[in-house]
Write a protein that binds this DNA or RNA. Structure first.
Lengths: 210, 210
DNA sequence: CGTTTATGGATACTGATACTATCCATCAAG
DNA sequence: CTTGATGGATAGTATCAGTATCCATAAACG
């Protein structure tokens, strides 16, 4: 398969494929002569994965590269690979909310984690996001979600259990890693879309025309 | 309060505040003379909201503007305001997956909606995202989430119900709109962070060191 | 065999986004 | 009365994700 056919097969423009090759997201094709390379099914698959992460999950190109490298080498422990996927989904910027809102949120989160017996590193990026979000909600006078945090956690734990279930049936370590990482990232998009759909339905029933 | 104090109170740099004023995200302060304006608590609150949407939920500046305008005028029906918030959370770009994967995903989603009795417009943005995501997962050989879609929907419906519950206790129409819109957007960040935390915990217990 | 057309590789350019920086004529505070 | 903000306008910057252009070579067609 030549680059033009790869482009046709995936719908990705040739210059974009060249860009991904340059950036190291996509491995080079096999060269038969200095300006002739052939690509295979692995390239089609990889390209689809790249597009899904970029288009659906809004993962930056540089992060996609990191994730793919980590999946390719498999030198890292699985738990670290997951951490990499998590960083792809966590906003890096910190929010400065009022000191007391943050303090209250921190306590609440610590209690939640303790009550559920979760094993979470104190510097997990999602921890910071959770605290910041709770603090922001409270500061903005929206304490509905804040006061129902435990109920949210119930539902989310259910989802997380489902995801683990759907992933542990993978036989090899490589397949497991791939499933976890892809599932973590695209799962977020899936859940978000489902939630919006459910909300839209409820909103339509409740407030249509109000 | 002058702009410097507003900056101190929120941690947002003065040039950035000026930028938000220019872009119409933040209403102008009250002018006492051609180069002297004073800002109040409403500005502090608004600025915090802007930052939360941008930093935590990754909403683009232009979309934040739209959302705030819609909340300010309250001329739209509530259901349309929610639609606006939904568009802020939905990727606009479409993915081209294989025809049969899309067809299968479309059928599956239609069945899901029918089975649950959801009221969803056929052109809802989340619908497209959901179909694309399912198609991508299947194409990538990750059918775990695809086959468990109904279980996911169970858990998500539970979350959506919680959110409605936490929001209907608002007395006025304006407060309701604000709660729904902010809750929809920041709720997404909250749920995402909770999910990652739950995953990290499970992953730590299951695969630490593997 | 000759002429389009496509390709690999390198380099340069573009458009969007979210700020930053500079300027200047006030205005306010010490 | 000098020093330091401020409002408003305009210009500049950094990053990101591609696009575009060139060129020497190779393949496909007639």
């Amino acid at each position: 398969m030549r680059i033009g056919e790869l482009s046709k097969a995936t719908g990705v423009p040739v210059p974009t494929i060249k860009y991904y090759l340059r950036e190291g997201l996509l491995p080079a094709g096999e060269l038969s002569s200095p300006n002739q390379a052939s690509y295979g099914d692995a390239h089609v698959r990889r390209l689809r994965l790249i597009r899904a992460l970029i288009e659906l999950a809004n993962v930056p190109v540089a992060t996609v590269k990191e994730i793919l490298e980590s999946l390719d080498t498999n030198s890292e422990p699985l738990h670290d690979q997951i951490g990499r996927a998590h960083r792809a989904l966590t906003p890096t910027r910190r929010l400065n909310s009022t000191e007391d809102a943050r303090a209250a949120a921190t306590t609440q989160v610590q209690e939640l984690i303790a009550a559920r017996g979760w094993t979470v590193e104190p510097d997990a990026p999602a921890l910071v996001t959770l605290i910041d979000t709770l603090a922001a909600l409270r500061t903005l006078g929206q304490d509905g979600p804040v006061s129902r945090l435990d109920d949210y956690a119930d539902a989310i734990e259910q989802v997380a259990r489902l995801e683990i279930e759907g992933v542990t049936e993978n036989p090899t370590r490589e397949q497991l890693a791939e499933s976890v990482v892809i599932g973590t990232i695209l799962g977020e998009t899936l859940i978000s879309a489902l939630r919006l759909l459910a909300q839209e339905s409820i909103s339509a029933d409740l407030w249509k025309g109000r």
